[in-house]
Design a protein around this nucleic acid. Structure first.
Lengths: 188, 188, 188, 188
DNA sequence: TATGAATGAGTGTTCATTCAT
DNA sequence: AATGAATGAACACTCATTCAT
């Protein structure tokens, strides 16, 4: 039930936004009552926090595995980009909620999520820094700014990319890793 | 007065989001009454539409001038990226409202804005296509996808970049044009 | 201008009711502004009072002439019924406002109108009483109740009768005077 | 609770009219909150529709029984008049709301009510037509117009008759059936 | 005469939340 | 684990009225 509630509320949050989605909207799609919702969640915000946590925690753990497994900075970067892009299909629309509704969390909860987001970003930044250091990436790059640029490319895809369209997530991932590598790889 | 209302509401929409900002919030910051708001706007949504129109129309007209003035595809691309990045400082926080709140427009109004967004994107796409054709840009690039990547980089900056921070908009623009050019320019 | 305002507001009051008609509705149909309305009327209620007064005063004066002019009770009654029925066409929809919106007058103004309504009713009642006394009408009738019955027949016509329909006001008046006379005239 | 709300709102609608009665007025008389009102009704108009339906449905079903039970046209007519007049006391002031506030229903709902009103009128018309055919009523009568006259007499009573006054509903009913019969019965 | 801008109280309605059952 | 009823604060919006110009 709790998972059902989460699943349906994500769809609604994507479609109408968190503020514009009422508890009634959520429970109506499941045919249960509001009281039932409040048995499983103490507040609407707790639900939102659950969604955020679930998403970022999975992303972080998979990112960690990549960093530990891959050898070269180049491969680490490629795999992380692929992770985020391919997730558009797998995790579905949750990503859009994730980037948009953080301001509706309480300051404390927002801080927790921001910290985890920071971790994810820091991990990319570190890959960049290592790559620059070991000569894989160009020396002039500023790891922090390039990280934001990469996140911009990938996150923005959640806004416009349709996995059911003419391009598959795989093709999009290939295209973008290619583009990014061209921007960062040192000339041979 | 109408302009004052627009200005203050942008700040509030940035901070709390459109749905979470009440008309009362807006008029209170100006010390006027709700009745006054409704003298100038027929609805909250009209205000949001005004904000969207004002923003995209200015962007479009400046983009048009760039495309007409600059000679090479490279310069066109550089200037457009600069236009968007430097706007973070000039137009201030309005950009964040622009990308986030479109779903609160009526379908008709949203369609109008989406069409103008499409124009802006199409213009970049055309610059890419021209550059590829005349040999300035790499042959393998897909104009459409690269355009989305560029928009991802620039738009995402509205989410995190602080013009009062250690980096100026000018420096960020330089960095990003450099990164993008590296990704698209054909080897010499 | 004042007369224009009265004329258009009657139409709106008929259509939507007094409460549901706003000053804005009224002035919009004339293309003027609210300030203009308040130059001519001190309040919305004053307008309503004007409408009531105009209507009842004309009715009363015409009724008075009938009572003074006609000889028999029967003719007095017939002419009064005709007066009210034929007015559906002449005065148009004002009658419907008259009977419906009196409760939106201030108590003082409502009292004035009710008193004039009372006069109109009393005059009919007196015709009935005279007719009974002089043997024209049946002895068993109670003037007061019959008066209300007659007013019911005539006033109700304002609710359903369409002067542009298959029946003319003249025909309706004939039919109803006939029906009423059958109910009240003493057998010969 | 729902019934309580209906009961109290009828009183207020009678007194001040539908438009001039606010939800707050209604719930304040019961000491509950607006939220509670909206738990039971989806809108103010739904409440108005409920009132209309409740009234006309009962009237129609009782009218139907009369038409099926009574033998002569005369008796049918007498019983129907009595039904409406006696209802002033039983159903109380609801009748006044019924005839006055129909224009505040949505067009769809108004159509439903108007159709039921039409049925009630048609049933009387048919009694008239039968009575004329079988010789009980005068040949010259036009069933439709006489029906409106009868409805005028009875409905108007809702506006002025006070069941607690000097006359009882029974006496009023007798008086009016007598008056109407005099107007319609064929001479013997 | 008329306007345009503003007011402030009020309207119908929504909604997150509570709680006895 | 879930319901049905209720709350109360908030919301977008309306409107009669005022008033300087």
């Amino acid at each position: 039930m709790k998972n059902e509630l989460i699943k349906h509320s994500i769809d609604l949050f994507v479609e109408k936004g968190y503020s514009a989605t009422s508890i009634k909207d959520i429970v109506d799609t499941l045919g249960v009552t509001k009281g039932s919702f409040y048995y499983h969640f103490t507040s609407k915000e707790e639900l939102l926090m659950d969604i955020h946590l679930q998403y970022i925690d999975e992303l972080l753990s998979r990112q960690k595995r990549i960093v530990e497994t891959e050898k070269t900075s180049r491969d680490k970067l490629v795999k992380i980009v692929e992770l985020v892009i391919r997730d558009i299909e797998k995790q579905g629309p949750i990503g859009r909620v994730y980037y948009r509704e953080i301001r509706h969390l309480t300051p404390e909860n927002a801080a927790i999520i921001r910290q985890k987001r920071g971790e994810f970003r820091d991990n990319i930044e570190q890959v960049m820094a290592e790559g620059i250091e070991n000569g894989e990436f160009r020396k002039e790059l500023q790891p922090k700014m390039i990280t934001f640029a990469i996140l911009g490319i990938t996150n923005w895809s959640y806004q416009w990319f349709n996995p059911q369209g003419e391009l598959s997530v795989g093709e999009l991932a290939d295209m973008y890793t290619d583009f990014i590598l061209n921007g960062v790889l040192a000339e041979k």
